[in-house]
Write a protein that binds this DNA or RNA. Sequence first.
DNA 1: CAAAATAATGACCATAAAGTCATTTATCAT
DNA 2: ATGATAAATGACTTTATGGTCATTATTTTG
Lengths: 213, 213
Amino acid sequence: MTDETPNAEPPRKRRKDERPAEIIEAGLKEFAEKGFAATRLEDVAARAGVVKGTIYRYFADKDELFEAAIRSQVAPVFDHVEALVDAFPGSCEELLKAVFRRIYEQMFETDLNVLMRIIISEGGRHPKIAEYYYTQSISKGRALLTKIIARGVERGEFRAGPASDLPMIVLAPAIMAMVWTMTFDRFDPVAAERFMAAHIDLVFNGLRANAAH
Amino acid sequence: MTDETPNAEPPRKRRKDERPAEIIEAGLKEFAEKGFAATRLEDVAARAGVVKGTIYRYFADKDELFEAAIRSQVAPVFDHVEALVDAFPGSCEELLKAVFRRIYEQMFETDLNVLMRIIISEGGRHPKIAEYYYTQSISKGRALLTKIIARGVERGEFRAGPASDLPMIVLAPAIMAMVWTMTFDRFDPVAAERFMAAHIDLVFNGLRANAAH
DNA sequence: CAAAATAATGACCATAAAGTCATTTATCAT
DNA sequence: ATGATAAATGACTTTATGGTCATTATTTTG
């Protein structure tokens, strides 16, 4: 009856290569749930299946782990989209819709929401991280949107409005969806589908009824 | 030369009535800047011109101060607007614009941004606070928007679109403006004016050029 | 103008969590 | 097999800060 499983794994394993990624993943989730300051490295360790001391073999301190966690996730959000934009055969409206869909997909089906949650709630206090995310992702996204909208205007599909100068505003409802799920979803849940449908409708058509002029 | 100013105020003052408000104000700002977990009660005390122990005469613990700080700010955001809505003489479009203007004003000229900053970044981890804010502010705001949009649809000013079911989506660009100023404004500043102009244009007109359809 | 009442202080305690490091042990090279 | 290497451990130290409380000083009041 005493715990003596015969084929038990050795309690300790050396896995130099896998560890950092595992610790980063655990850290990312803890940081997203608790915030940077309230995250305990011991919890991160537990989640990664190691002991606190092990973290320090791979990361100098909490800040460095935090940075590494962010960096690990930033990469591919807009990359997929980038190819799409240049090669897209259809109308700019269809293209933009495809981009929106992609963003909602990533936001609700991958760890992007974890990253955004961290950026939104900690970005202000960690300029390094905010800047990194800005240069790696946001600025690219903005450039992409600028291009799509400019093309749409050129082709006569879109009006030449202030969105040409502030293109990220067409993503605002997606940001709101993120903030909403972070804070109020518990009391007033909104399905991603509904948000996306309303988003697309509003951004293309606006509220106003198509009156005479 | 030794510090013996003749008319110096007594170093200690008893101000039972003013203290709580001062501590709350100091707390609010510290919480907004550092976040709940990273805020040090000693800093709050210093900012309020008292000593840490004094805080505990008025608040049981850090959580209670936090709650008090939130509650102190929630009150009047939509109240001003509420009167406006019922009495407004003009079109629904003008009414909505007035509401938007009011929100941007409050967001950038009062402490509303401080509150929103806290709600956005800490709401997820403090359900009590999020729920309080939701019931006190958000739900009222939503009801108001619902009313305005329904009226607009009725009068033929607005299309009957998904925004009727998800009215807060028309505020999304304002939320985005808030998130933006919290995180990326440092690297890529956007004036509130520009944001608001783009917001209004997008929400009423949408992107699409008014083609024959 | 005492003397009681209590706001404010600052020194203190308790605890939690970051960070360190000598020891243990899995893995690798010979 | 055996010794060398270094990954992993866990017990330890340090520090920070939330929270307490006896003492001090300012009002109040009788």
